[in-house]
């Protein structure tokens, strides 16, 4: 039916960016990493920095071998967010690739 092909190869959708912003405290990385490990989401890289006075942790992770999908992972991390009192977002990496890389 499609007369034009939607270029699927440009959209890979396997890697995630997890961002944690808030007050620095013990156990933030451990708490997030534990959820990822339990569900076989492989952490590829971690960076920590202070941006505009906020503790900011960014993780790149690979969900391709995971037992859950991105939406399920978001739900789990939202629960963690409430528990440790920092803001946690997890997004498909393509958002950043599209916006910041040509």
């Amino acid at each position: 039916m499609c007369s034009y092909k939607n270029n699927a190869s440009e959209i890979e959708g396997k890697r995630l960016i997890v961002t944690v912003v808030g007050e620095d405290k013990v156990g933030i990385i451990a708490g997030v990493a534990e959820i990822l490990a339990t569900h076989k989401v492989n952490i590829l890289d971690i960076s920590q920095t202070i941006l505009q006075d906020f503790f900011t942790m960014i993780m790149i992770a690979d969900i391709s071998t995971s037992t859950i999908n991105l939406l399920e992972l978001q739900t789990l991390l939202k629960e963690k967010e409430k528990e440790i009192g920092v803001k946690i977002d997890v997004q498909n990496e393509d958002v950043f690739k599209y916006m910041h890389r040509i």
């Binding site: 890289d45 960076s47 950043f96 690739k97």
Partner: peptide, 12 residues
């Protein structure tokens, strides 16, 4: 890391 933290936080 494929992105600068500033880039990621700019989008967010």
């Amino acid at each position: 890391l494929s992105f600068m933290p500033e880039e990621i936080m700019e989008t967010i």
